[in-house]
């Protein structure tokens, strides 16, 4: 899956398709990119960052120091948390735990349009790819439940070039389960 995602990112960035292979690491598969110069690169976040630099779109990694740090934080979150979600329970925890725990994604996005700064970054794109199968699986009511994630997701999937081969997920902008918080 990670390889398809990197191919989509290449297209999104306007790059030619690179040569990928997979390497087993523990129980999961890690993508490997064979570059023309130097050694091969391993890992989703590493390769994605490399592609962005190659496309000369460094602003996708954040502009200010803070933005860069936040982008890195979410790239790490993507590989350590999102890629390891297995059960529906996990999904629920990640998207929305409870109101005491402000660490979850839905709360994080409450006052933000993009994950870092005021423009789309690699953090948005990779989190979007990572969450796509999960969000596509949610019911209308669940999507409304994770309102901030849904709003963000809907916006990112409409950003030019980002969605690529992935199907567009439908969101209903007018709330229909308004009694649910």
């Amino acid at each position: 899956m990670a390889v398809e995602e990197l191919t989509a990112l290449e297209k999104c960035l306007g790059l030619k398709a690179g040569k990928y292979s997979r390497r087993a690491q523990g129980s999961s598969q890690v993508p490997v990119l064979q570059t023309n110069s130097g050694p091969s690169l391993a890992g989703l976040a590493t390769i994605a960052s490399h592609l962005v630099t190659q496309a000369k779109k460094e602003e996708l990694l954040g502009v200010s120091l803070e933005e860069k740090a936040v982008v890195q934080q979410w790239l790490e979150y993507r590989t350590t948390r999102i890629d390891r979600l297995t059960s529906k329970e996990d999904v629920r925890t990640t998207l929305k735990v409870s109101h005491e725990n402000r660490q979850d994604l839905n709360c994080y996005l409450e006052d933000k349009v993009y994950m870092a700064g005021n423009k789309i970054t690699l953090a948005d794109i990779l989190t979007y790819y990572g969450l796509h199968p999960i969000i596509a699986d949610l019911s209308i009511q669940e999507k409304e439940n994770y309102m901030n994630v849904s709003r963000w997701f809907s916006h990112i999937q409409h950003s030019p070039g980002v969605r690529q081969h992935l199907p567009s997920v439908v969101f209903i902008k007018n709330r229909i389960y308004s009694n649910v918080h």
Partner: peptide
């Protein structure tokens, strides 16, 4: 704006 990023559409 609770469910929308911008007032009309996604831009």
């Amino acid at each position: 704006l609770q469910s929308r990023t911008f007032l009309v559409g996604e831009r």
